[in-house]
């Protein structure tokens, strides 16, 4: 863990991370935390909802993590991280006052402006709620710009739900339709059981397909069936936006790892309309 401050050269080089300090750490689930970060120097890496940053644990490595919240003060960042590999294990173990390196922001953002005056469907599976949370917070902050706002969220089990404090607050809002489902309920679960696409049918009365912008992030299989369900309801492909994840080592379209057909997901994505992805979406292992 980096307990001491990080000093970086002034020269502009896209591979040099900026030093940030952990302000707070909130445990979301057994293996997932949300960190709030503040720049050590007067740098402002201003990320839009949907974009991601490269988070560095110096000596361990670097990973792409999307922004999951909005800054309370300009320049602050919020990231939700699940311990999956060596770098993310170190990231979730960080404590307030620890230092990390940050590069970014990178990639495309959610089409919030396009959604002005439209119905908005946010559909999240598992950790996929992290990039959508920043979109939802942004939408709720300017709620008057949008028509119906519907958030659908599926998790493996009730204990896997992220942002539980937010969820209970959001459930009280009359201007937000929030539906949750889990695969494996426990004895206290009073929500839906089953997969996320099933929820779309239940909220079909709330949105007008031709005037709906859908934003989806979750496991590949969940996204696949969600798209199919949206298409059945008549949401056009160019209104369905996905956030995709791939191995990323540079975040600036140079390392080649994140390619999906013609796209470098780090710079052409991670958020792309389904209309552009459709030619490749059914090609296994592409």
């Amino acid at each position: 863990m980096v307990k001491a401050a990080i000093t970086t050269p002034a020269a502009t080089n896209p591979f040099i991370p900026f030093p940030f300090v952990v302000m707070s750490r909130r445990r979301e689930t057994r293996d997932t935390v949300t960190l709030r970060l503040r720049p050590l120097r007067n740098v402002r890496l201003l990320a839009q909802p949907g974009q991601f940053m490269m988070l560095s644990v110096i000596g361990v490595g670097e990973v792409p993590i999307s922004v999951s919240g909005l800054p309370r003060r300009p320049g602050e960042l919020e990231h939700t991280i699940r311990a999956v590999g060596s770098v993310t294990r170190h990231l979730v173990a960080l404590r307030p006052g620890d230092y990390i390196g940050v590069r970014g922001p990178f990639g495309t953002s959610w089409p919030l402006q396009l959604a002005h005056g439209q119905d908005v469907l946010l559909i999240a599976g598992g950790l996929g709620f992290a990039p959508l949370r920043s979109a939802l917070l942004s939408i709720l902050r300017e709620r008057w710009r949008y028509r119906q706002v519907i958030a659908l969220y599926g998790a493996r089990s009730p204990t896997d739900l992220l942002y539980r404090r937010d969820l209970s607050r959001w459930q009280q809002r009359p201007d937000l339709v929030l539906r949750m489902t889990v695969d494996h309920p426990d004895q206290y679960w009073r929500g839906q059981v089953g997969v996320v696409p099933n929820l779309i049918r239940q909220v079909a009365a709330f949105f007008e397909p031709a005037n709906t912008i859908a934003m989806i992030c979750g496991p590949e299989i969940m996204m696949r069936f969600t798209i199919r369900e949206l298409q059945k309801h008549g949401v056009p492909d160019e209104h369905i936006f996905l956030s995709l994840e791939r191995n990323m080592q540079c975040a600036i379209g140079l390392c080649g790892h994140c390619q999906l057909g013609p796209f470098f997901l780090c710079k052409d994505g991670p958020v792309l309309p389904y209309s552009r992805l459709a030619p490749f979406s059914d090609i296994r292992e592409f």
């Binding site: 980096v2 001491a4 401050a5 990080i6 000093t7 970086t8 050269p9 020269a11 080089n13 591979f15 040099i16 991370p17 110096i58 000596g59 230092y99 390196g101």
Partner: peptide, 16 residues
């Protein structure tokens, strides 16, 4: 080598 970092008593210093 993209950059090198040294741990010093004053903190981590990253250099090109």
């Amino acid at each position: 080598t993209l950059w090198r970092a040294r741990r010093t008593p004053d903190g981590v210093i990253v250099e090109l």
